[in-house]
């Protein structure tokens, strides 16, 4: 099936897509790798963005945007309309050396990344039912590339924090990330996200902060503090808790598998490997065998006690 065929009535003619803004409103959202700027919003869209990203959303910001999105109006007839019940949503992506095109339910986007990073988002959605979802789906992809350009990575993970340190749990679907998060929260730990987290290199080592997208724990869209990464654990269910070492290559393979979007982009997997290789030189990765009760928390070790 050709690009976007699942979502569009006909193949997009990119050169003929008008860059007609919905309005003249502007908002900047500040989370990992940001600020991310949205222009061309209608008043209704601006209000929806400010509600969805309350606390990290500014009408104006002193910081130069790191990623600029122009939101454009497009006729609803461009998109296919279908019953989404029982349907697994997967955005259609078309990769290029300097960017990517994206198609989904009521959205079409193109993004480019040599600096300055940015792109256009076409949607027919202007209401509470549709626009926030369209925007979040776009951001989930944009932040991957922004972080990649910064030398970092987005990982499907649960991040548990206590004191100055955070522990990144990765694993297959069903390995217990959300269960571990609930147990940690019940023991007074902070849970950044049990879905997507941003890992970034800094002069003082690798840091992690949550991304403001929904997870199984019903996280808010706020921005977490950036914690120093104490360790990364590949989660496996087992009858008793245990921590076991993991070879460097297996650790890299595990992390690649947990890095959404970038791990299937033929133009960016080299950069992803570079960034994760750098992460592994700084942070240890072990297997955490997890028995679905809170005793596993005592096995998480900060670098100074490991």
């Amino acid at each position: 099936m050709s690009f976007a065929a699942a979502y569009l009535q006909q193949a997009p003619e990119w050169s003929r897509l008008a860059a007609e803004p919905w309005g003249h409103e502007r908002v900047a959202i500040d989370f990992a790798g940001g600020p991310y700027e949205l222009t061309g919003l209608s008043e209704a869209q601006r209000t929806l963005v400010q509600e969805r990203f309350a606390g990290i959303c500014e009408g104006t910001t002193a910081a130069e945007p790191a990623f600029r999105f122009a939101v454009c109006r497009v006729d609803a007839e461009l998109f296919r309309h279908f019953d989404p019940r029982g349907w697994v949503y997967d955005l259609d992506r078309d990769y290029h050396s300097g960017g990517l095109r994206l198609a989904g339910r009521d959205l079409l986007a193109e993004m480019h990344w040599p600096e300055p990073m940015g792109g256009r988002l076409w949607t027919s959605q202007n209401t509470h039912e549709g626009f926030p979802g369209v925007l979040e789906n776009c951001f989930r992809v944009a932040v991957v590339y922004r972080l990649l350009g910064m030398g970092g990575a987005v990982l499907h993970s649960a991040v548990l924090a206590r004191g100055a340190w955070a522990y990144v749990l990765v694993g297959r679907s069903g390995a217990g990330k959300s269960t571990a998060s609930r147990l940690a929260r019940s023991q007074g730990w902070e849970v950044l996200s049990d879905d997507l987290n941003a890992l970034m290199p800094t002069a003082g080592g690798w840091r992690v902060e949550k991304l403001p997208f929904a997870g199984d724990l019903g996280q808010t869209a706020g921005r977490s503090r950036a914690y120093a990464v104490a360790g990364i654990y590949w989660l496996e269910q087992a009858p008793i808790h245990a921590v076991r070492g993991l070879s460097g290559s297996l650790a890299l393979a595990r992390l690649v598998a947990c890095a959404p979007v970038a791990n299937v982009d033929p133009y960016r997997t080299g950069r992803l490997l570079d960034n994760l290789d750098c992460l592994l030189r700084s942070v240890g990765v072990n297997t955490l065998r997890f028995a679905r009760e809170p005793g596993f928390l005592s096995l998480l070790a900060s670098p100074c006690t490991a």
């Binding site: 460097g248 290559s249 297996l250 890299l252 393979a253 033929p266 490997l273 592994l280």
Partner: peptide, 25 residues
């Protein structure tokens, strides 16, 4: 052409993009 790889010490990681697989060699 669908493959990207990286040596890590005495092993290697291979990403097969079309198949969505990551292999350790």
């Amino acid at each position: 052409s669908e493959v990207r790889f990286r040596r890590v010490s005495e092993e290697g990681v291979v990403i097969h993009q079309r198949q969505g697989e990551v292999l350790v060699l």
